[in-house]
Design a protein around this nucleic acid. Structure first.
Length: 499
RNA sequence: GCGCCGCUAGCUCAAUUGGCAGAGCAGCUGACUCUUAAUCAGCGGGUUGUAGGUUCAAGUCCUACGCGGCGUACCA
């Protein structure tokens, strides 16, 4: 296809903008100049003049760049609202008096919504009081070839996700969430570092499938000629570090799980995991609560947060703690224990309308029943304590209660926000558990872990009693902002568009 | 995976029983020196997701496929 044919296919608005780009170049105005003599950011100008009276002249000359998001042209006076990436805005004014006929005509001819423009001039306020730069000069900073979507109608969710660059321009909340995420992660790092935790990086490409119950993505190393797994969790490597004497470690990084995609699940998601030697799951619950509360204080200045969607979430105070088996027993009006028979659990599942897969272990049935009967009521932050042993192969047995492990799940806003363990450190017991997992895998359970001999060898060198926590970063953002997971991840995975 | 709903102009949406494919914003031309989603006058812009089928006639009905949303299952 030659260029003329391509031009034929382009939508009218893009053809016109291309022509403007070419025309600018034709009159010696670079539509994409390599540098511009900028003196101020829009935010700086705003901050320097917080409350000027109407029709004020400051005498201060500034030169700045912003994207044109609204334009109002009259015969001899043009207005444009310029927005910077941080969301700050200022009005540009071009009057015939100041810029002259030629510059004014060029402005009207070549500037479209979405263009980034440079203006230099005096900081003033208009007769309606709007903070403005009264230009004595303007230049194109970057000509946009595509029209901006309508600013007053919400972009469709698909367009927001597929073209986040546009979403970030037209929807301030999108940029707000992106910036919030950075602050949240920084606050977590600061908190953990202050407690003596070392941030370490462990393999994303792993030769064994372990650390969580999930189906992995598989890839291949040409050099080694072996299949590799994108990690589903960093757990087994962080524990190796603890064995080696790095007694407080954490990692904030991506995990990959080849599973469902919905409003709270993404195939790649960010996770904080941290491990502390000589701590147990109760200590880890305390730390987790103060981490999240510190994030709230640091980012929002309060533990009671008004979210972007207007709803409120209260993260303050001590959080509720409930026992998994006790709360379930209460909810179903019958005592459920780790000894409750599989038949009885299946019957309860049937009554609750839960379809039971034959591969499910009894602990899985208990967790399903718990989610069905108890979970819906959990809006306030709540630690759910003491899980079945057969669904938690990396957790140590409870010190008092037979049949359960020292594990909690933290629920906030109705979904799981974090999980914490007293880690299983006995290499003999760990080997038994992993061997059971491998047997499940051999029977076709694609989520079951394999027997990681190197990990077991590490444990055989003696791992101190330790607590560990995994916390979803995207989900923390969801709880703090009230958004779906695809809004908290800047560029979530989407199926490619067809050519 | 399964089920339901959707896909129409650059963007957001409408189109009655199957009967001429429309609006707002954006764009183009013109007017306007204080606008704020500026206003006024005029004008363009469409392979209705793709491929088939039924019909005198399909945006609308049927089939397949693609993409998306929601629900459900698995998972954090």
């Amino acid at each position: 296809m030659d260029e003329a044919e391509i031009d034929e296919d382009l939508p009218e608005q893009i053809r016109i903008r291309r022509a403007k780009r070419d025309a600018l170049a034709g009159i010696g105005r670079d539509p994409y100049p390599v540098s511009l003599p900028i003196t101020h950011s829009i935010a700086e100008v705003r901050a320097a003049h917080p409350d000027l009276p109407v029709d004020a002249h400051t005498g201060e000359i500034v030169a700045l760049v912003g994207r044109v998001i609204f334009a109002r042209n009259t015969g001899k006076l043009c207005f444009a609202t310029l927005r910077a990436g941080d969301g700050s805005q200022v009005q540009a004014m071009l009057s015939l008096d100041k810029v002259g006929q030629e510059a004014l005509d060029e402005w009207k001819e070549y500037v479209d919504l979405g263009d980034q423009v440079f203006v230099r001039g005096e900081v003033i306020t208009s007769k309606r009081g709007e903070l403005s730069v009264l230009a004595d000069e303007w230049r194109m900073a970057a000509k946009a070839l595509r029209p901006l979507p309508v600013a007053h109608k919400p972009l469709s969710e698909e367009a927001r996700v597929r073209q986040r660059y546009v979403d970030l321009i037209v929807r301030p909340e999108a940029a707000q969430i992106a910036r919030l995420r950075v602050q949240v992660v920084a606050a977590l790092r600061e908190s953990l570092t202050d407690r003596g935790f070392l941030e370490i990086e462990t393999p994303m490409l792993q030769t064994q499938h372990g650390g969580a119950a999930a189906r992995p993505f598989v890839t291949h190393s040409n050099a080694l000629d072996i299949d590799l797994f994108l990690r589903i969790a960093p757990e087994l490597f962080l524990k190796r570090a603890v064995v080696g004497g790095l007694e407080r470690v954490f990692e904030i990084n991506r995990n990959f799980r080849n599973e469902g995609v919905d409003s709270s699940h993404s195939p790649e998601f960010a996770m904080l995991e941290f491990y502390q030697a000589f701590a147990d799951y109760r200590d880890m619950a305390t730390i987790t609560r103060s981490l999240i509360q510190h994030v709230a204080d640091a980012v929002f200045g309060s533990q009671v947060i008004t979210r972007i969607d207007g709803t409120e979430v209260d993260l303050s105070g001590p959080w509720d703690t409930i026992d998994l088996y006790e709360s379930l027993s209460q909810a179903v009006g019958r005592e459920i224990t780790p000894n409750t028979s599989r038949a009885e659990l299946e019957e309860l599942c049937e009554q609750a309308g839960i379809s039971v897969a034959p591969s499910w272990v009894p602990g899985k049935l208990v967790e399903e029943l718990f989610e069905h009967h108890v979970l819906a009521g959990l809006q306030r932050p709540t630690f759910v304590m003491d899980y079945p042993v057969d669904t938690s192969p990396l957790v140590r047995a409870h010190r008092d209660k037979p049949g359960v492990v020292e594990k909690w799940d933290l629920y906030i806003g109705g979904f799981e926000q974090a999980t914490g363990y007293s880690e299983l450190v006995d290499p003999v017991v760990q080997r038994e558990r992993l061997t059971e997992q491998a047997a499940l895998a051999a029977r076709g359970d694609e989520e079951a872990m394999s027997v990681d001999e190197d990990f077991l060898r590490a444990l055989e060198h003696g791992m101190p009693p330790s607590g560990g926590v995994g916390m979803g970063i995207d989900r923390l953002l969801m709880n703090l902002t009230g958004s779906g997971i695809r809004e908290t991840i800047l560029f979530p995975l989407v199926r490619p568009e067809r050519p």
